[in-house]
Structure formats: C-alpha cells, structure tokens
Nucleic acid binder design. Structure first.
Length: 486
RNA sequence: GGCCCUAUGGUCAAGCGGUCAAGACGCCGCCCUCUCAAGGCGGAAUCGGGAGUUCGAUUCUCCCUAGGGUCACCA
C-alpha cells in the first residue's frame, strides 16, 4: 500500500485500560508518527452486552494523559467517520449483503440451542466449530425466510480446501489450511457485526495501512484475508505483537497486581515511566538506550525491533523506570509534588525554602509518588517510645551514654546559632565534630536519632534539623535527653 | 485434542556462521558517605534437549520438549 501510513487504536469500551492495550496503542501511535502518518481512534462497541459505563472516558483520558494524540476519532471527527462502530451498522449490513450476493457469505438460521447441542456432540473431536448446516440453503429461500422475520446471522463461506497464507511484519509468513477455518459469523442476529467483520470493513473504509494488534489474533488472520479477497480489498500490513505475561507465565491479568493504566498512576507511577517501560517490553532499539521520552520514541521506533516472544511484566523494572523518571524531573516541579504531603506533615504552609529542601531530600530516594507521605512521616512528630538502642551504632562508635553527652553539647550550640539555616547548622555540626576530635558520624548519628527517632531517614541530621526548625529541633532533643537520662 | 506461534541469565534483551555471548532490572561485594538513597567500581548468573548442514553453530534445517495463543451470535 502506498501513501501515508495509517494506524488505528480500536479498543472496545468494556473495562479499564489494560497495559497491554496501552502498549498496542503506543506502538500503533509510533508506527504512524515515525513515518509522518496518521493515528486513528476507533471505538469498537459491537458487543452491546459488555459495554461498561465510563470505559470510553477512561480510554480518552489515558490517551491524553500519555500524550498519544490521535488525528481522527469520535471526539474530533475526520474524513472517514463515524468512528464508532455502533454508528456504522448500515455499512456492515450493506457489505454483508454484498458478500451474500457474491456467494462469499450466507444466511444461517441455526439458533443458539442447536449450536450448543452441536458443541456437546463435538466434544473431543478435532475440528470443533459450526457444522455448516445452513451453508447450502437455497439463497432465495433463505432471503424469503429472513424477510418473513425469522432471525438469522450471516456467516462467511470458507473455502473447504487449499491454504491461506499471509505475511506478518514481525512473525513472517504464516500458512493455515482452509479446512481449519470456521464459517464464522459476520453479522449477528441483533444486526451488529462481529469484531472480525467490522474490523475488515472499517480498516478498509478508514484506509488503515498497518493493522497492529496482539498475537492472539494471529490464528484468525487468514479469515480476515479471505474477507479482503472476497471484497477485492487490498490487504493491509499486519503487525502482530507478542503478549504480555504475568510473573507466572500466564497472560497478564488482574490477579498479577495493578494492570490498568489508571491503577498504576494511582499507585504512584508516572505516565512517562509506564510508557517507557511498555515501549521496551517487546521492542528493542538495537542499542543500549533505555530511557525514552515520547518524542524520542517517535524518532527511534522501528517495526523490525519488535520481538516475537511473549514478555513477562516485571514490576521491579517498572519501578526502576519510575525512579529514573522521578529523578530526572525539574527539581522545582518535583518539589511541587511534595507540597501537599509536606504541609500536611508540617501542619502549616511551607516556605519556598522548606519546599525546595524537602524536594531535594526526597527526589533521589523516591520510588513512587505515593511514598511521599511515608517519607515525610518523621516530620510529623517524634515517636514517644522509639528504641533507645538506636543510639548504639558500632560503626559510628556511639551508644546511649555517649549520645547523651553529645546531645547536651549540641543542644547548647544549636540554641546559640545566630540563624537557622541549612548552611549554618551544617557548619556548626562539622565544627563541633572537629573540635571534639571525633568523626562526623559521632555527632550526626545521635542527633538524627534524637530528632527523628529513626535510624533511616530521607536525608541527614542537618536536613532533618533544618526542616524541623529550631524550636522543634530543640524540643525533640530535650525529649530525647529526658528519656536518655531516665 | 487440532491448528498457529515462541524458546539467550530470575526478568527485559543485543546477537543475525567464527564474539572471552552486549546492555539494563534484580541480586551480591567494594568505594563514597552522618543513616537510607543516589552515584562510582566490580561480581555471580544465559544460548532447553537431540540429530543434521558446515572447516566451524547461540545463529541455518528437522525432531523432541516446554511455554503461550486460538478453536464464541467476545473482542
């Protein structure tokens, strides 16, 4: 197919946005963008029973959130609309009629009871599927029965012999015996098309050049091609994608953890990190680059870099991407993310200096956005009953007794500081260590424990004291001193 | 079960007949250091098995095995 590349993302609004869908959307978007083509959004709502309220909104929001802008779609229109399948029913019906007329399809009056019975009988047999009961009905008679109001579906008349072959851009040439192909339903009795049929009609109507989808469609692709052939339409380039699996090797689903984009965002992951991780889950640039912004992806993406084997979704690696993206944010922007939790812990509004400091403390340590409150927990209050054993640290050469002496000296010095700035506190504490001829740790460690009650804090004693403020720092030292004395 | 696909460390993966088999996550160790991180350095860890083809197979072919997908009036 010549001309511009056109891809489409065609989700059905039947639930939340699964990361597998999002990855497909990303690849579809990139395949279009990398060659200056168009990316189309189409809504496949042909299964009226499975529609989920709000699912459509989730699709729009996710795409927007990720920056995957579409060029045509239900919300913005375009030259090939409508872009919602339930609004295209006439098209499918007309196309199906064309197929009946040309002998490539037929009306079938078998009801679900008969089909079910058929399935029961076929149990254990090699080829399971419709027995083509209505395939040879007289077309005129069938048309008459339909006209009389008898419910029917329209089925594709598959060739009984021969093979169908197609070339997939990632899997190569795939050949299937036509005898394996079922006379699949094209138009359901409710007048809605099946996915298989609507897809072919729409992809042709919308001039889609690259059909990108999960590899679960690989084995049904020959049926599509037979349809394209029956219509005389040009067959698009197929790009089938390897599946995403959970840690147990099964197709990724809910029970593996958060698998929806929104869920992940709520769990503290950045859209950039999610997208970046998804990009590399099934695609490789061929070199060692790993960090990609959307703009960089648009430059680097290649279909040939797509992998054929299924990939396991690894939350650890996703977490690493998240950390990496978090660290690369503008410090000011990152700090803004901390404001809410900081002020909450502080119990008052934060100054710019405090905000900057908090951001500086957290940015290199944060894994998820949702961890911010926990990282700031020490700021809230000094745990009344923290373990005094924390003062004992063999590497720092400190224990409760030495810490008590140290804290008494430091308290006086800190109280006397001219101003309470990070630099001044820092200078003073280092000077104190030097003056006493001890290692920095011997002054820093007791102080950290005394004012936070924790052995692990996001930052050192200096940062803690600075953020705490002089009054609160001294108060906590006194509290700790009292306990050490007791 | 039939058919289709896949197969490099625990995970993502590069490799496309000749390499000491990249890199990243995770893991371990060291350095740095007031803790934890971050950062730096180093380490352990991989070609599923068997036949071929070839001077030479991770790479090509076949078989086996394992895993996955698919066989709906779901997409």
């Amino acid at each position: 197919m010549s001309g511009t590349v056109r891809t489409r993302f065609a989700p059905s609004p039947t639930g939340f946005m699964h990361v597998g869908n999002l990855r497909s959307a990303l690849y579809e978007y990139l395949i279009a963008r990398v060659s200056g083509g168009q990316f189309v959004l189409r809504i496949e709502d042909t299964d009226q029973k499975r529609l989920v309220p709000g699912a459509l909104e989730a699709i729009y929001e996710t795409l927007e959130h990720c920056g995957l802008e579409h060029d045509e779609g239900p919300d913005i229109g375009g030259p090939y609309g409508p872009y919602v399948q339930s609004e295209r029913l006439d098209r499918y019906r007309a196309e199906a009629e064309k197929l009946i007329a040309s002998g490539h399809a037929y009306r079938c009056f078998c009801d679900s009871e008969r089909l079910e019975e058929l399935r029961r009988q076929q149990e254990g047999q090699s080829f399971q599927g419709y027995d083509r009961h209505c395939r040879d009905l007289d077309p005129d008679e069938a048309a008459a029965r339909a006209a009389a109001g008898e419910p029917f579906v329209i089925r594709q008349r598959m060739p009984l012999e021969g093979q169908t072959e197609f070339v997939d851009a990632v899997y190569g040439t795939i050949t299937v015996d036509n005898s394996e192909l079922e006379d699949q339903i094209l138009l359901k009795s409710d007048g809605f098309p099946t996915y298989n049929f609507a897809n072919v009609v729409d992809d042709h109507d919308m001039q889609i050049t690259h059909v990108v989808r999960g590899s679960e469609y690989l084995s049904s692709t020959p049926k599509y091609n037979l349809l394209y052939d029956a219509f005389g339409y040009e067959i698009p380039t197929y790009v089938h994608l390897p599946l995403i699996l959970g840690e147990d090797g099964q197709k990724l689903s809910k029970r593996h953890g958060a698998t929806g984009f929104t869920e992940l965002v709520e769990a503290g992951y950045l859209p950039e990190a999610i997208l970046n991780y998804l990009l590399l889950l099934g695609w490789s640039p061929g070199d060692t680059r790993e960090i990609f912004s959307l703009a960089e992806m648009e430059q680097a993406f290649t279909i040939s870099g797509l992998s054929r084997s299924p990939a396991t979704f690894d939350y650890d690696k996703l977490l690493w991407f998240n950390q990496t993206w978090l660290r690369s944010e503008e410090p000011k922007q990152f700090a803004r993310r901390c404001r809410g939790a900081l002020e909450d812990a502080l119990g008052r509004a934060a100054t710019d200096t405090e905000l900057e400091l908090a951001g500086r403390m957290l940015q290199p340590r944060l894994e998820r956005l949702t961890d911010i409150p926990a990282q700031l927990e020490w700021l809230r209050e000094l745990p009344e009953d923290y373990d005094l054993g924390l003062f004992t640290h063999k590497k720092m050469k400190t224990d409760a007794a030495s810490s008590r002496l140290m804290l008494e000296r430091l308290r006086a010095g800190l109280a006397a500081l001219e101003s309470w700035t990070e630099a001044e506190i820092h200078t003073y504490l280092l000077a104190a260590a030097k003056e006493q001829a001890v290692k920095n740790g011997q002054v820093m460690w007791p102080l950290r424990i005394a004012i936070s009650g924790r052995s692990v804090t996001p930052g050192g004693a200096v940062e803690l004291a600075t953020l705490l403020g002089r009054e609160e720092t001294l108060r906590r030292i006194d509290l700790s001193l009292a306990r050490l004395a007791g």
